[in-house]
Each structure stands twice: as structure tokens, then as C-alpha cells.
């Protein structure tokens, strides 16, 4: 510092001196290395189980999938002792239940999000927001028990695929509300104002300007919500019986789904059944993967034009 005191009191010189190596530099470099190692390690630890799961499922489940009968046949007449049959009954069950869930949950979720973002003032919005918060932490088995008590015990309907869908609706609505809400918030207010300034009513602004602008994000959110509910097992165990045959009627009879098929065959300690467990698990993973890819493709082709 003494050299600086001799007359050069200007800022740049002093700043230059602080850039020069000091005794703190080695320590800083060491801390940087430690932090880098910790962060990379955490990443690796987080990824290992994920990769492991996928590899295991692939390795143990891939054997049955290339066979067309896996995709086209049911388990009708097949016992745990014999190989063969397919998962068609479970795939169609999972898809139908997910579709029924989406048909109910998506409109409700999107309308609720529109209320929260576009008409946010007022007590109703706060009540909706609070309810969604609670619902999003709801354990799936509680949703299933609630539907059992409401739909089956109180209203007297029998167990069915639709009862499962009702429980899944409770789980999917908060996902759709929250993701749609985030997407609607991302739509710049200037676009709404531009539309208002053209003499367009508010509802039409929402339908024709805001929702199309947020469309790809909303679709992604819906598909992620679907992916989440497809793997839910508790509602299936409580609200519908497993069937080895194809049943496409959501409203009556036992109905298979992939998690139920996995659970059912898991209870048999016989080689053909165990093979089917892993094949069904892989099928479920693939179904979720396809949904994810579809979501990304829709997002890409319908997104805001650049």
C-alpha cells in the first residue's frame, strides 16, 4: 500500500492491486475444488438409483415385450405356472382409467387456475388456492378411502374402474391447477391489455389470447399429471378388483391396470409370473415415457412462434 500512498490515489490502481495474488488465493481455490466435488458427488448419487432402476427394469422386463402377444392378449386362462398371455387387459385398463380421470380433472383444473390467475381478487380464489394446497399433499390412499366411503358406501355404487378414476381425479386436479396457474402467470400482462384495448371482452381475451399463449405449458402440465396418476396403486387396490380378462367397461366389473397386474403376479413366486411382473413394470415406464415425449412434441409444434 505504501507505493500507492505516494500520490496515485486513483481508484483503478487500488482496484488493480486487489486483483494481484494474495495469500487468500490458494485457500479460495481449495474451497472451490471441495465445493465442485461435493456438487458433482451429489449429482452422481442422485442419478445412480434412477439409472439403476431403469437398467434393472429393462434387463428383467425386456424379454416379453418384443412378442406381439404381450401387447395383444390378456391373461385370461393363464395361471402363474404357465408362461404366455399378454398385458393388453392391463394396458387398456390403465389408459381408460387415465383418460376418464383426465376428462374430469383437466377442465376442473384449468378453470380453477383461470379463476386464480385471471379473477384472483376475492375470497373464493383464496379458498380455492388453500384447497389446492391441501389436495396436493393428499396421500393417494386417503383419496381412495374417501372415494370408497363416498362413492361405494354412501352412494351405493360398486367397485369399478370409474371409482378408481374418481380417486385419481382428486390427485390430478392439484397438479393441473398448479402447472396451469404457473403457465398463465407467465403470459405477459401486456398481451391481455393489448386485447382489452381492441375492445375484446375479458372472457374472450382469456379463451383466444391467454390460453393459446400458455397452451404448450398447460399440455405439458396435464401430461405430467397423467404420468403421475398412471402409476398410482393405492386407489386400484381399494376401489377395483383385478381381472385377468379384458374389461373395457369403466362402470362395472373388475378391471385390470398395470400396477394391479404387477401386484397380482408379484404374489406368485413362480418364474413365469415374476417375468410378467417385470414386463408389466417396463410397460408402465414406457407408457409414462411416451406421454412425456408426446408432451414435448406438442409443446414444440404448438409453442409460441418465434
Amino acid at each position: 500500500m505504501s507505493a500507492l500512498d505516494t500520490g496515485h490515489q486513483t481508484g483503478p490502481l487500488q482496484r488493480a492491486s486487489s486483483l494481484a495474488p494474495s495469500q487468500g488465493l490458494a485457500g479460495r481455490a481449495a474451497r472451490n475444488t471441495v465445493a465442485t466435488v461435493v456438487v458433482v458427488l451429489a449429482f452422481v448419487i442422485a442419478v445412480i438409483p434412477l439409472v439403476w432402476i431403469i437398467l434393472t427394469v429393462l434387463q428383467k422386463g425386456a424379454a416379453l415385450l418384443p412378442d406381439a402377444s404381450w401387447w395383444l392378449n390378456s391373461q385370461r386362462g393363464i395361471t402363474p405356472r404357465i408362461a404366455g398371455g399378454g398385458a393388453y387387459h392391463a394396458i387398456i385398463g390403465t389408459i381408460l382409467q387415465a383418460l376418464a380421470t383426465a376428462v374430469i380433472a383437466v377442465p376442473i383444473g384449468i378453470f380453477a387456475a383461470i379463476l386464480l390467475v385471471e379473477y384472483s381478487a376475492g375470497r373464493l380464489a383464496r379458498v380455492v388456492s388453500f384447497t389446492v394446497d391441501i389436495l396436493s399433499g393428499l396421500p393417494s390412499i386417503v383419496a381412495a378411502l374417501f372415494i370408497y366411503a363416498f362413492w361405494i358406501t354412501t352412494l351405493g355404487f360398486s367397485r369399478s374402474g370409474f371409482a378408481v378414476s374418481l380417486a385419481l381425479v382428486l390427485l390430478m386436479i392439484p397438479v393441473v391447477v398448479r402447472s396451469t396457474e404457473e403457465m398463465l402467470k407467465l403470459v405477459p400482462n401486456e398481451l391481455r391489455e393489448a386485447s382489452f384495448a381492441l375492445g375484446v371482452p375479458k372472457w374472450k381475451t382469456i379463451v383466444r389470447i391467454v390460453l393459446p399463449t400458455a397452451f404448450s405449458g398447460i399440455v405439458t402440465g396435464v401430461l405430467l399429471g397423467l404420468a403421475r396418476i398412471m402409476g398410482e396403486t393405492a386407489p386400484l387396490l381399494i376401489l377395483v378388483g383385478y381381472s385377468q380378462s379384458i374389461n373395457t367397461n369403466l362402470f362395472s366389473g373388475n378391471m385390470a391396470a398395470l400396477p394391479l397386474m404387477i401386484n397380482n403376479d408379484r404374489q406368485q413366486a413362480l418364474e413365469p409370473a415374476v417375468e410378467r411382473v417385470w414386463a408389466a413394470a417396463l410397460t408402465l415406464v414406457l407408457l409414462v415415457l411416451v406421454l412425456n415425449i408426446a408432451g414435448r412434441l406438442i409443446a414444440r409444434f404448438s409453442s409460441v412462434k418465434k
Partner: peptide
């Protein structure tokens, strides 16, 4: 709404509809 049809407006930042 009908007032805004009669009295138009242009904003500070250009805001074409992105879709």
C-alpha cells in the same frame, strides 16, 4: 369494452400476440 373499441390504444412496449 365498447369504450375500448372506440378509443384504441398503443402501448410502451410493442406487444404483438405471440401465437
Amino acid at each position: 369494452v365498447s369504450v375500448r373499441r372506440t378509443v384504441g390504444m398503443v402501448f410502451q412496449r410493442p406487444n404483438p400476440f405471440p401465437t
